[in-house]
Design a protein around this nucleic acid. Sequence first.
DNA 1: TAGGCCATCTGGTCCT
DNA 2: AGGACCAGATGGCCTA
Length: 144
Amino acid sequence: MEMPKSFLSSALFDLVSDVDFTEMMPSTPVPAPAEPQSADCDGPYQDLTSIRELDLSAARASDFYASPASASGGKPRRKRVISSVQRQAANVRERKRMFSLNEAFDRLRRKVPTFAYEKRLSRIETLRLAIVYISFMTDILEKH
DNA sequence: TAGGCCATCTGGTCCT
DNA sequence: AGGACCAGATGGCCTA
């Protein structure tokens, strides 16, 4: 996405005046986003394909049982107890979900204006800057 | 070393 | 029943 040069002039500074850039602009150049470190398992995202290999057939209905009652209401509520295989599968799904969430954050990062030397925006910074950016663009559209 | 950020795991709840 | 979503906990890495 190409940003109009004029936008990158003073208007940008007006735009983000309520954004604390002192937080967002370190004095040093930024290394590439750090590779996720290996966790005690297989490491981030590394295992996303392995969900296919998970032997989900090992999970059976007998892995579940009914709990006596829920804490609220007294109405008996099923407590789901899952097998380790199902837990593993749920973990993989959660990893995939977070991966797609982060992909969306990356796409959003590329859409909001930043300086080339600027450190990679965190997720919260990305959201806040996107809000400011959208507000700014909306203002422009409404005035013309 | 403290604080921020992030990945991952986990259990609870919602939804199909 | 089971997947999606969510929030809390935990631990590792990085920077000031």
